[in-house]
C-alpha cells in the first residue's frame, strides 16, 4: 500500500465523488417530482396525458440508461440539439428515474382502498385535506421502501456517466490504471462508493421506519 499515492490522488477522488453525488442528487429529486406528476396524472385519470404517461413509463423502465446517454450525447447534436455532458447525465437519469418513481408512487396510491376516499369525503374532508391527511400518509408508507430502493438504484446507475465524458469515479479509476497503482486506486474507488451509498441506504431505512408509523404499519 503506497500511502503517498493515496494522498496525492485523494483530492481528485473527492472531486469525482462530489460530481457523482451532486448529479445523483439532482437526478433523484427531479425523478421524484416527475414520478409524483406522472402518478398523479394516472391517479386522477386525466385523459390523453395518462396514455402518454403509460408510454413514457414503459419506455423508461425497459431501456438501459447507457443507451439513452449515448443517444443524448452523440445522437442529438446531429439533429442540432447540443447538450453538455452534465445535462445529458441529469436528463438521462431523470428520464429513467421518473418512470421508476411513477410506478413506485402509483403502487402506493393503489394500495389505499376506495373506502378510505369515501369515508373521508363523507366525514366532510375537502379533496385536498383527504389527500394530505388520509391518502398520502398511507400511500407513502407503501411507496417509500420502493422509492428508497429506486433512489439507491439511480445512485449506482451514475457509475456509467464517464461515457458522456464526465470525470466521475469510474473515469478517474480507469485513468489511474496506467499510473500503475491499481490496488490503491481500486481501493479508493470502492471506499468512495461505500461512503456515498451506505449513508443513503441507512437514511432510507430510517425513513421507512418513520413512514411505517405514519401508515399504522400498513
Amino acid at each position: 500500500m503506497d500511502l503517498s499515492f493515496i494522498i496525492k490522488w485523494l483530492p481528485l477522488f473527492g472531486a469525482a465523488a462530489w460530481l457523482t453525488v451532486s448529479l445523483a442528487f439532482v437526478g433523484v429529486v427531479v425523478s421524484v417530482a416527475l414520478g409524483f406528476l406522472c402518478a398523479g396524472i394516472k391517479y386522477y385519470r386525466i385523459p390523453v396525458l395518462r396514455e402518454l404517461v403509460s408510454v413514457y413509463v414503459e419506455v423508461g423502465r425497459n431501456t438501459p440508461l447507457m443507451i439513452q446517454l449515448f443517444f443524448l450525447y452523440f445522437g442529438l447534436p446531429r439533429l442540432g440539439i447540443l447538450l453538455e455532458g452534465r445535462t445529458c447525465a441529469i436528463v438521462g437519469l431523470s428520464f429513467i428515474g421518473g418512470a421508476y418513481m411513477a410506478e413506485a408512487i402509483r403502487g402506493g396510491l393503489s394500495a389505499v382502498g376506495k373506502n378510505q376516499t369515501e369515508s373521508g369525503l363523507s366525514l366532510g374532508l375537502s379533496r385536498l385535506q383527504l389527500l394530505r391527511h388520509v391518502i398520502m400518509p398511507q400511500a407513502m408508507a407503501v411507496a417509500l421502501p420502493v422509492i428508497g430502493a429506486t433512489a439507491i438504484f439511480l445512485l449506482k446507475e451514475t457509475s456509467v456517466f464517464s461515457i458522456v465524458a464526465l470525470p466521475d469515479l469510474m473515469y478517474l479509476a480507469k485513468d489511474l490504471l496506467k499510473e500503475g497503482h491499481s490496488a490503491e486506486s481500486n481501493m479508493m474507488l470502492v471506499v468512495a462508493y461505500l461512503v456515498i451509498i451506505l449513508p443513503v441506504s441507512l437514511f432510507f431505512a430510517f425513513l421507512e421506519r418513520r413512514a411505517r408509523h405514519a401508515g399504522f404499519g400498513a
Partner: peptide, 14 residues
C-alpha cells in the same frame, strides 16, 4: 451496495 459497473471493473482489471 456496489454498482455493478464497479464490480465488473474490479474483477476485470484486478
Amino acid at each position: 451496495v456496489m454498482p455493478i459497473l464497479v464490480l465488473l471493473f474490479l474483477f476485470y482489471y484486478s
